[in-house]
């Protein structure tokens, strides 16, 4: 990333203050977004999302595993993001580690809530607490309990891997959008006679038949079907909207140049119903609680538009796929 001269910085800040950014966008306008589905055939679900010059790929793999002892009724999701050196010379070797970790953690917080997989209103003595308070319902983005096959015995482990191919700011939003789209695909979700799986009926994981052994101690036999898939319910997966604060205003979908001028950035994940599923803040500067509240209401509004844009993109991409086959 090249540095900017004082004059250019001044110009960018001025543009944001006057609601006309360098490429003619307004503060709350996204760049055009494009979605490609099924870019990695080996994965259960994959998607490539381009947001202006930002380009990311996400693949989702599902494997059968064992639930942890602490949470026998929940599946596991591992999220890992890598930055390819093609995105910039700074990412060569170990240069991308810091950013990769930051993005992985950010994505985890936005999609899974905290580590236990559910958002809990932890009382933090600052604005974040308020943010939790005003969210009427706390719900993790990905419902982990829907990934269980046999309680305590078999569950689905989802491996969500992101790759940043080209970076021009707003990576978190692009990655989250890609995760949302990638989940639509053939995820091998299991189907047993257990009632709990009814919730998964329109989600895309492969069908699994489970035959329970005679004694409850036995590991159940699992048979994964190659032909039958269950659709994973992706409508619940939230989109992430990052509000980047530059000067006294905040913008969505910041480019790399604009991000270099930010004082802090708040990423909010909002699901279809307008519920906040997670929140993470980057950047050093503090935020006034009232600003956070303001940001939440703006993010909800922006997320609504983004969700509908993504939905239409998904529909278009699926239609294109159907045409080919």
């Amino acid at each position: 990333m090249v540095g900017l001269s004082a004059g250019e910085k001044h110009f960018i800040c001025g543009g944001i203050a006057q609601d006309l950014r360098s490429d003619g966008r307004q503060r709350l306008q996204f760049r055009p977004i494009s979605v490609l589905i099924g870019v990695i055939p080996q994965a259960n679900g994959s998607a490539q999302v381009r947001l202006g010059a930002t380009d990311v790929i996400v693949s989702v793999k599902a494997e059968l595993g064992k639930p942890t002892l602490l949470q026998p009724d929940k599946g596991k999701v591992a999220i890992y993001v890598d930055c390819s050196p093609t995105a910039g010379p700074a990412f060569e070797g170990r240069g991308s580690e810091e950013l990769s970790t930051e993005l992985s953690v950010g994505l985890q917080r936005c999609l899974l809530g905290d580590k236990s997989g559910a958002v809990q209103p932890t009382p933090v003595p600052n604005g974040i607490f308020l943010a939790y308070e005003c969210a009427t319902e706390f719900r993790a983005g990905i419902d982990l309990s829907s990934l269980i096959v046999v309680e305590g015995k078999v569950c689905w482990d989802l491996y969500v891997d992101g790759l940043v191919i080209s970076s021009d700011g707003n990576l978190l939003d692009a990655l989250a959008a890609a995760v949302k789209v990638a989940h639509l695909l053939r995820m091998f979700i299991c189907c047993t006679d257990i009632d709990g799986l009814a919730a998964l009926s329109n989600t895309g994981i492969p069908k699994v038949s489970v035959s329970l052994g005679p004694s409850p101690e036995d590991q159940p036999e699992v048979d994964v079907s190659d032909e039958e898939f269950l659709q994973f319910d992706t409508s619940g997966i939230p989109v992430v909207v990052t509000l980047t604060k530059v000067g006294r205003h905040y913008i969505v979908d910041a480019t790399a140049e604009e991000e270099s001028q930010m004082s802090s950035a708040v990423s909010l994940s909002v699901n279809r119903n307008g519920h906040i599923c997670g929140l993470t803040k980057r950047g050093g500067a503090g935020l006034d609680p009232s600003v956070v509240l303001d940001m939440i209401s703006v993010a909800k509004h922006v997320a609504k538009n983004l969700t509908s844009v993504l939905d239409s993109e998904i529909a278009a991409a699926e239609a294109a796929e159907d045409d080919e086959s």
Partner: peptide
């Protein structure tokens, strides 16, 4: 320049001119 950067608010490029700059920049893009 130092003092100019300090009172940034008054010194931003006028909106009219900025619109033209963005329009021409987008033409180039």
């Amino acid at each position: 320049q130092e003092s100019r950067m300090e009172n940034q608010e008054q010194n931003f490029t006028p909106l009219k001119v900025r619109q033209q700059i963005c329009r021409i920049a987008n033409s180039v893009r």
